[in-house]
Simulated assay, not measured.
Amino acid sequence: MDEYYLFTGEDSLPAAIAYALGIDKLSFELIPDLKDAIAVPFDLTLRAGHLKNDRLVHSDDFSDIGNIWTDYMPNEFTWLLMSSKMRKVIDSQLSGEESIDWLTCGIGHAGEVVTYNVLRFDKPLDVLNIEETTFVKGTDHIIKPVFAQKKIRNYKVFNKPSFGDNWRIPPAVYIATSVKQAIEKAGLTGVAFSRAKVV
């Protein structure tokens, strides 16, 4: 049986974080505008994120941040915002059944704009083992997902169901071992993995 992993960004500070300056919408509020777009209609700007008095603060002081342009870029929307190198690695591993496409997004810093990519799903995927998944009582809100091996066997990347259209641009995805190994072999930065439960 294949193993699968929750794939997210590394949770460490200090770090460069991409912000949409002047945009006052939350991630889920932007999804309807991005559903059919080919690019995010605004650029993001890098700020240096630090932990101060147990709070995230940002500034323009990047002096203690070694790698500003990580392959997974932390951002205020918690999108899967990936470098072109990471996009190529993921694209090379897909089975073709995942219904994934990409939005491009410019990220600016010190007069330079670098193109990143936002992973987007075109349709919701039926992936859960309903009997084993833990839900908030009386709702369909997931506390702890458990995935059905027979449902995910043809997917190399998938997301869990979520309310509204949030499944389209999720904050994290699940990946097969082969994708994890390809990411690690390519030396991609800013990523974190934890094993998912599959039965």
Rank of each mutant, 00 (worst) to 15 (best):
F147A: 02
M73T: 06
V89W: 00
A182Q: 05
S99R: 04
D101I: 02
G49I: 03
T104P: 01
V118K: 00
G164R: 05
G138Y: 11
D64E: 15
V198Y: 02
K160N: 09
R87D: 00
T8G: 03
E76I: 10
N53I: 12
F163D: 14
A176P: 03
L26C: 08
Y5P: 02
I31F: 05
T134A: 11
Q181C: 12
R120F: 01
E131F: 09
Q93N: 11
F28V: 05
W102C: 00
N67S: 15
S95Q: 10
S99H: 07
A39T: 05
S59T: 15
S63D: 10
P161W: 09
A196M: 08
D54C: 07
K85R: 14
P161Y: 08
E132F: 12
N166W: 13
L21P: 07
R120N: 01
D11V: 12
G187T: 01
I38Q: 10
F158M: 05
V127A: 03
A18T: 07
Y174Q: 06
Y4S: 05
A18P: 05
A20E: 07
E132G: 09
L103K: 01
E97Y: 10
S27K: 14
G22Q: 14
Y19L: 05
R47M: 13
E98I: 04
K123W: 11
D64G: 13
T104H: 04
T134R: 06
K180V: 10
K197D: 11
L26E: 12
S194Y: 03
F28K: 02
L46Y: 02
P14L: 04
D64L: 10
V173I: 08
S12F: 13
T70H: 03
P124D: 01
K180R: 15
E98F: 08
A148N: 12
V198L: 11
F135G: 02
L6S: 08
K52L: 13
A16M: 05
Y5D: 09
V157N: 02
A39E: 06
Y155A: 03
F135W: 07
I65Q: 05
N53P: 08
R153W: 09
N154S: 12
T115N: 14
Q93L: 11
V179N: 01
I65P: 00
A148K: 06
F62I: 09
L188A: 04
W167A: 06
N166H: 14
K123T: 11
G108F: 15
K180T: 04
A172T: 09
V191T: 13
T8I: 07
D24F: 15
K137P: 13
N53M: 13
V173Y: 00
F163H: 14
K151F: 12
M86I: 04
A176F: 03
I183M: 03
A172E: 08
G22K: 14
E184K: 07
Y116C: 06
V198P: 00
E131L: 15
F193L: 04
L21T: 11
E3W: 14
T104L: 06
K150W: 07
V179M: 08
S84F: 08
L125A: 05
G108W: 03
A176G: 08
K156R: 12
K150E: 15
L94D: 00
G164P: 02
A48W: 00
A39F: 06
L128A: 11
Q149H: 15
I107H: 01
G164E: 11
I68T: 04
C105Y: 00
I183L: 10
K25A: 10
W79K: 02
T115L: 12
G164C: 05
D60Q: 15
N53K: 14
G138L: 13
W167F: 10
S63F: 10
